[in-house]
Amino acid sequence: MRTKILAVICTVALFAQAIMAQSIKGSDTALPLTQKAAEAYMKANKGAKITVTGGGSGVGITALLDGTTDIAMSSRKMKFDEKSKFQQGGKTVVEKVIAYDALAVIVNPANKVNQLTRQQLEDIYTGKVKNWKEVGGDDVAIVVYSRETSSGTYEFFKEQILKNKNYMSSVLSMPATGAIMQSVSQTKGAIGYVGLAYLNSSVKALKVSYDGKNFVAPSVENAQNKTYPIVRPLFFYFEKKSEAKVSPFITFMLSPEGQKIVKQEGYIPLQ
């Protein structure tokens, strides 16, 4: 009896492996995009099976290291210690940029402020500026929202806007982008940052300037012509030895057809 059960379990597991031709795991930022692309790809190629799951950039890379996923999506470059772990395991990793994502700085729609410089953003996020009146708004305390410390978005914003300084400790960290949208739309003095694809009318996106002169609104066009500054690449990582297995989908992703989906979903195409 027991061996029978064991046999059943094994076949089920094997069966599962056979069907799961390819799995992609990682960044929640890249998730909606990859999911859409995978759907389109599976429609075009009958018999192809792609499973896409999120969990975060770190989760994806760890899974790639453990061999439980074929492709890791990441919204940040692989960290040094992660790279060295692959080296120790004798694995070569290939990195591919599949699209770009722009970060929009958002405030409550009732806020008078329409634009901020990078320096002002830095001062707000490091706690030097605490009231909207200091940057041309009403006399309202600034409530600063951020993503969780371990998300790729958090790191990118820190590098780009804060010039690697640390966030002040009293920022409110939200577990996900959606929660930031929700809170900013409810809270009068709020400021936060989200991926361009998430923008809607419940919040107001600010124009941003690095030089203090030209303020640029976040949009796909402005990100593509490089006038909007807060743009980051989204990566696919995979092992060199599984290149044959994964390259059809990645080729599709980089093809004009794939890049069209990128644009539809509110991300920035490579070209």
């Binding site: 089920v12 597991a13 069966f15 599962a16 999911q35 499973t51 799951t53 959606g178």
Partner: peptide, 27 residues
């Protein structure tokens, strides 16, 4: 977070009601 098809084996991930609520309430 999201699976395109139902799990096919016991070593697959699954979606679950409470986690689903958490995800769609916050992200």
């Amino acid at each position: 977070f999201f699976l395109p098809q139902l799990p096919t084996g016991i070593f697959d991930q699954v979606m679950a009601l409470p986690y689903h609520l958490y995800v769609i309430a916050t992200s």
